[in-house]
């Protein structure tokens, strides 16, 4: 798939572009954090300590008004008191309303985002690429039918469709054992990791069309290439030609599209979690939604995971730019779907 020439182009573009280096570094960082989350997180991200709720991040110690109630002759009286809240090095990014460590949650959130992004993209590609290749290769009615159904899919904004499907089908969650914890390397960390199953399926289903469109375009073009014609005239079966010639030569644009799609799906996942259409509590979007209630009193709960999303998506987008500039498949702008 990756010819020496391609690799040379990649290297040249990488050397030339500072942004490409930044992108690769950011993505590497996020992947590293996601993979080794149990070893990196200072606390169990789900462990609560109600007494340590809403601690500010380092450098933001201050006073806070706390309100509670008292019963006076059977009526409820509201009591305000001013308390000092001190940031601690134990929770460098502060804690949320349940006293969970924000840094650990941000670290574990990377897992959810990346896994949903990668698995969702994979699913979209697995569905979309074969459909697109076949349509472009066979043409005729099959192609017309595909293009119209792709148009129908596109007429539903992916977020709207995803909300509808998750909302209507439920938020199935799959618990996967965490290998580090099973191996005893990360004592005290959650034993399982929750994958939002419905969300993965749904983001894959709402995004396959982009892959189908790109794959079809490639198949249409490659179909008339001399070597494809030659293969066919030598009696190669259509499935063989598709697998052996058309697919490998479509790989570059599909790879670039996949990169853009991972970014789009990370954003889509965060939007779904923000709206409560997810299946896990360890997600950046979920934390942003939780923090929404505390904007005026604990701004960091929404802010920290938001910054994490932005950095991750910037990284993936820069990576995508690098691939596109180096490989130039000419599909810029497609595969959209930012949330």
């Amino acid at each position: 798939m990756l010819s020496p020439r391609t690799l040379r182009n990649l290297k040249r573009e990488f050397d030339r572009s500072a942004l490409a280096k930044v992108g690769v570094a950011l993505v590497a960082l996020v992947v590293f954090v996601a993979v080794f989350a149990p070893l990196l997180a200072p606390h169990d991200p789900t462990a609560q300590s109600l007494d340590d709720k809403r601690l500010p991040p380092l450098g933001f110690s201050g006073t806070e008004n706390q309100t509670t109630t008292e019963r006076v002759n059977g009526t409820v009286q509201v009591v305000n008191e001013t308390v000092t809240v001190n940031a601690t090095a134990d929770h460098p990014l502060g804690t949320n309303a349940l006293g969970q460590d924000m840094l650990s949650r941000v670290i574990y959130g990377a897992r959810t985002s990346l896994l949903v992004g990668l698995l969702g993209t994979l699913l979209a590609a697995v569905v979309g690429v074969p459909v697109g290749l076949v349509a472009g290769y066979v043409r005729g009615r099959v192609d017309d039918a595909l293009m119209r159904s792709a148009d129908v899919m596109l007429a539903f904004p992916s977020l709207v469709l995803a909300i509808a499907l998750v909302g209507l089908w439920g938020r199935a969650a799959i618990r996967v054992p965490d290998p580090f914890v099973v191996a005893g390397l990360a004592p005290g960390m959650p034993r399982t990791f929750t994958l939002p199953g419905t969300v993965i399926v749904v983001v894959g289903l709402v995004n396959w069309v982009w892959f189908a469109r790109v794959a079809r375009g490639e198949a249409l073009a490659l179909r008339d290439e001399e070597y494809v014609k030659a293969a066919r005239s030598l009696g190669a079966s259509d499935p063989f030609v598709l697998r052996r010639h058309v697919l490998p030569n479509s790989a570059t644009p599909i790879l670039v599209l996949a990169t853009i799609q991972v970014a789009a799906i990370v954003l889509l996942e965060s939007a779904l979690s923000y709206l409560g259409f997810s299946g896990t509590e360890l997600s950046w979007g979920f934390d942003i939604a939780q923090g929404r209630d505390y904007l005026a009193t604990a701004w960091w709960i929404s802010t920290m995971p938001g910054i994490a999303i932005v950095l991750t998506v910037i990284g993936i987008n820069l990576l995508g730019d690098w691939l596109r500039d180096a490989l130039d498949p000419g599909i810029e702008g497609e595969g959209g779907g930012g949330a």
Binding site: Y294, A296, T297
Partner: peptide
């Protein structure tokens, strides 16, 4: 009014 905003209202 959620508890965390009670203080703002009261103040």
């Amino acid at each position: 009014v959620p508890p965390q905003d009670a203080g703002r209202v009261q103040e």
